[in-house]
Every structure is written in structure tokens, then in C-alpha cells.
Design a protein around this nucleic acid. Structure first.
Lengths: 100, 100
DNA sequence: TGGCATGCTACGGATTCTGTAGCAGCTCTT
DNA sequence: AAGAGCTGCTACAGAATCCGTAGCATGCCA
């Protein structure tokens, strides 16, 4: 899985995820990701562009390519799992302070 | 996506992936992951156990829980995308040295 | 008692991420 | 022309993380 070299890095999946619906400028992506360092963000954006997942369009900013959108769709089951996992985690943490 | 705090770290997805079919001992996981540092591996294994994704069984070693197996299934489309992406990447790199 | 496996810890050095400051280019307004 | 505000992006120091290797404590078997 060479994929993990690309997506295993910090913010990589997050950046794609934040661009899944609509494009965003560099600074906007930064805000959506909670103020990542622009150096790291620039690295990720470049890597993801080189991987053909993102592209840069002058007026609109960064956006997913067709490949990127396919990746987002492949991420959907993961998102569904994450939601179920979050519920479980919430139950767990509740059970540490509440015996019910 | 608090999921990314868990899976966005290095080796997290890889460890799960390597345990998707059969359990493995600490040292065996280490080998399957290309010799990760045991310190990092120990961190990941603990985090993933606390997240309920993995569990430790004395005779067999580490293995995926039911939650973990659900995650592996959620990872399947991602794997499929990765395979298609790898083909594209191979074509790309070929086209840099070969004009055909 | 010695050999071999287990899970795991320690530590120095390299890599990566964070957080803030700032540059150069373009557009709009006055 | 000058100023404000946006754009993408770079620089740098300090913190966090990862890597690579060495080694410990335990349990099993002869």
C-alpha cells in the first residue's frame, strides 16, 4: 500500500475531506483545517496535486479532481464507520463516570 | 473527524491492515510493517486497543476486534481506489521516460 | 542452568509539525 | 499614484513525533 505514504501523513486525508464538496482557497483550506501550518499545508497540497487527487484553479482555488472525488467516495464507508465508532467512544467515556 | 486523530498517525492504518486476516505477535507485526520502531508500534497498539479496534490475546498475539473488522471492511473501497491509483501513477511515471 | 521466545522500555539523532511573521503579486477604491 | 485587502507561499525557532538499536523481565523447554 503505497497509498499510506500519501494518506498516512498528517492532514492529508483531512485536506481531501474538506475539499470534498466545494473548492477553497489556500487560506480557506487552512481555516477549515483548524489553522494548519501553511508550510505543511503547502506540502500536502503539492503532494496531492502530484498524485492527481487535487488541482488548482485560479479563480476558485483548490478542488478535487475526478480521481479525488473517487477517493472521497471510497472514503464514505470509512466515514460511516467513524460515526458508529464515535458513538461507541462516547458510550465508553460515559461508562467511566456513570455506571448505567 | 476525530477518526483522523487515530488513523492519521503513522503506521496506524498499516497495523490494522496487516492484522486484517490473521493475528500476529508484537514482533511479527513489527516485521510485517517493515521493522517499525517498537516504541511507536507500542504506542499505536495501545491507542488502537483503547479505541476498541484491536485486542491482545495471550497465545495468538494481537488481532482485530469486531469493530476492527468493520473498519477493515470500510477500508476495502479505499484499497480498491489505491489499486486503480497505483495503475495511474505507474502510467504517469512511464510517460515521463517514454513518450508512447 | 542455558537457550529461545515473548512484550515492552530507553535513548540519541533525524524527521516532521506547530505557530507566527512576512514577502510578492493582483484587484479594487479613492 | 497610493492604500487596503485579497491571493499563494516562504522562513524560522521550538515542540512533538519517528527511527534505529540495545536491552530488560518474564515464561517455556530440555
Amino acid at each position: 500500500m503505497a497509498l499510506l505514504d500519501l494518506l498516512g501523513r498528517r492532514w492529508a486525508l483531512r485536506v481531501i475531506w474538506e475539499l470534498r464538496e466545494r473548492p477553497a482557497t489556500f487560506r480557506e483550506v487552512r481555516e477549515r483545517c483548524g489553522g494548519v501550518s501553511p508550510a505543511v499545508l503547502n506540502d500536502r497540497l503539492r503532494e496531492l496535486r502530484e498524485a492527481g487527487v487535487l488541482e488548482h484553479d485560479d479563480p476558485e482555488g483548490y478542488r478535487c479532481t475526478a480521481h479525488g472525488l473517487a477517493l472521497v467516495q471510497a472514503l464514505a464507508p470509512l466515514d460511516a464507520w467513524a460515526k458508529a465508532w464515535a458513538k461507541r467512544a462516547a458510550r465508553e467515556s460515559r461508562s467511566t463516570s456513570d455506571a448505567g
